[in-house]
Amino acid sequence: MTLPFLASDAGAAGLGVALAVGVAFGWGLERAGLGNARRLAGQFFGTDFTVLKVLFSAIVTAMLGVFWLAQMGILDPARVYVPETWLLPQAVGGALFGVGMVAGGLCPGTSCVAAAAGRRDGLAVMGGMLAGILLFAAAFPLIDQLYEATPAGTLTFPDLLRVPPGTVVAAVVAMALGAFAGVEAFERRAALRPGGAS
């Protein structure tokens, strides 16, 4: 039997997975302190690197997991949904998102964590997100050209660069470890470690 083993994510099993995955995700985010908007925003002032550490640790872990499970024939990667690439909308949307993130101090997922932990600013961000989505829907006729621009379909780096997936995996690991080393060195020099929390 190859994984993924649930063909659809509807039904009791699929939604049970949703809940379990969500709880674990929220737990992990809160443990890392990303439910705290000041900590998250600190990333963009160079005072706190939790966002970078968590994001790249998670990416590397999942990426290595997918690669090796596929290598061993346990996981059929063709059956794992890869988000499609839309060059321009994702570049512009990403930039907008980044601005929103430093202004709001939370992203959609962490805003739920913050709100659940009692942070009223978490609720504010969640409310803003809903409003932003509705604004997008209302303004859609104005931006649908941008929205539909430059589709590239399912495009991964191995496809794009015409190199084996293992090469890209190795490069991402190297980049992540390099970034971690650089950040650790920077933190040591800036003495960013009052006792207790880091």
Binding site: A37, L55, P83, E84, W86, P89, Q90, V92, G93, G94, A95, L96, F97, G98, V99, G100, M101, V102, A103, G104, G105, L106, C107, P108, G109, S111, D121, G122, A124, V125, M126, G127, G128, M129, L130, A131, G132, I133, L134, L135, F136, I143, L146, Y147
Partner: peptide, 19 residues
């Protein structure tokens, strides 16, 4: 926070996703 959320909502819809 609210304003940031609005902008993130726009960005996430354009980009087909968020963090």
């Amino acid at each position: 926070g609210f304003g940031g959320g609005v902008v993130m909502g726009l960005g996430a819809k354009l980009a087909r996703g968020c963090t």
